[in-house]
């Protein structure tokens, strides 16, 4: 904007000493810089390491430090470099049913846990969203409160609760509900409990965000037009909270597929999840190339739900005017 100024009058400005063009460049640069930093971060600490993992997945295991044959190193011709590529590790994943089963088990466990977390989290989020507004920050805080303790310790604590002589069994036997301790520890049930417990806040928070901004007069309007309370919920509240449901499910499902700590601590030795398989390949077998291949496949497996998630978010933003 230009302001007409009488000749001889000076308009004092902040950056008087600097020429106009340099200010423009600085501003353009600083706005880019804001985006550049996180991108550089992702490049350095995600993309480059991932490229290295992909590279390792194409090599052969060997007794050396590091324990794999060099691939794409040195300045040989392209053909020579490509010849060093080995798909053996990926073939190996298809030949041994162990890996396929581990992937399937992981996805199934993650999916079941996600549904359970939704069933527990939805009423919780709904309750918080409908609570008196003065009470909501406190209730939200309580949802997030477990994050203040180390994840590992919290999962470890579940052992004390779930083991045969643990708190849960002692309590149930004390009130006479059971006379034999329940065998929950080292079963899939323990894994479900662990995952639902650990990832519940990730389910509750997006659900709360979706439910909280909903206009309550919509429910009244539905009732006014002939809906009972429950049919108003299924026809209005539930469909309108769908973006929150999708976000919450993705936030639970994606990390749950690759979960290692919970199956390792609560699921015992016989549980077959891909995170545990990966750990075994890497640390027990010292087979870096195969474990890299496992990791690459796991990532590809997760890219699909992430893309669905992002698309849903984009659609939601579009709808949000």
């Amino acid at each position: 904007m230009t302001i007409p100024v009488a000749p001889g009058t000076d308009i004092p400005t902040k950056n008087e000493s600097r020429p106009v063009w340099s200010r423009g460049i600085l501003r353009a640069l600083s706005s880019r810089l804001v985006i550049l930093v996180p991108y550089l971060w992702l490049l350095a600490f995600f993309l480059v390491p991932f490229a290295i993992v992909v590279k390792i997945s194409f090599s052969q295991t060997t007794l050396a430090i590091p324990p794999y044959t060099p691939v794409l190193e040195g300045v040989g011709s392209l053909w020579q470099n490509l010849r060093e590529f080995s798909f053996d590790n990926y073939l190996w994943l298809t030949q041994d049913a162990l890996y396929f089963n581990a992937y399937v088990t992981s996805v199934v466990i993650a999916a079941v846990s996600t549904v359970l977390a939704l069933l527990v989290g939805y009423p919780l989020a709904y309750g918080v969203a409908r609570a008196p507004s003065a009470l909501r920050p406190l209730l939200l805080m309580l949802v997030i409160l477990p994050f203040w303790t180390s994840f590992l310790i919290r999962v470890y604590a579940w052992i004390g609760i779930l083991k045969p002589e643990g708190l849960l069994n002692q309590f149930l036997m004390a009130i006479g509900l059971i006379d034999q301790p329940l065998l929950i520890m080292n079963t899939y049930t323990a894994i479900f409990i662990g995952i639902v417990y650990s990832y519940l806040p990730f389910m509750v928070l997006p659900l709360y965000a979706a439910l909280e901004k909903m206009d309550y007069s919509l429910i009244e309007a539905a009732q006014d037009l002939g809906c009972t309370r429950s049919s108003a919920f299924w026809k209005i509240t539930f469909p309108l909270s769908r973006p929150g449901i999708i976000a919450g499910c993705m936030l639970v499902f994606i990390p749950a597929v690759g979960e290692f700590v919970i199956p390792d601590l609560l699921g015992g030795s016989q549980t077959l999840m891909i995170g545990k398989t990966l750990w075994n390949e890497f640390f027990a077998n010292r087979d870096w190339p195969v474990s890299s291949a496992v990791a690459v496949i796991l990532l590809l497996l997760l890219v699909v739900p992430i893309m669905i998630f992002q698309q849903a978010q984009a659609r939601q933003q579009e709808q949000g005017r």
Partner: peptide
């Protein structure tokens, strides 16, 4: 409310988005 033979037009309109 769902059994009353009255209908309401809400101030916020309360249209189902």
């Amino acid at each position: 409310p769902y059994r009353r033979p009255v209908n309401m037009m809400f101030q916020s309109y309360a249209l189902f988005p």
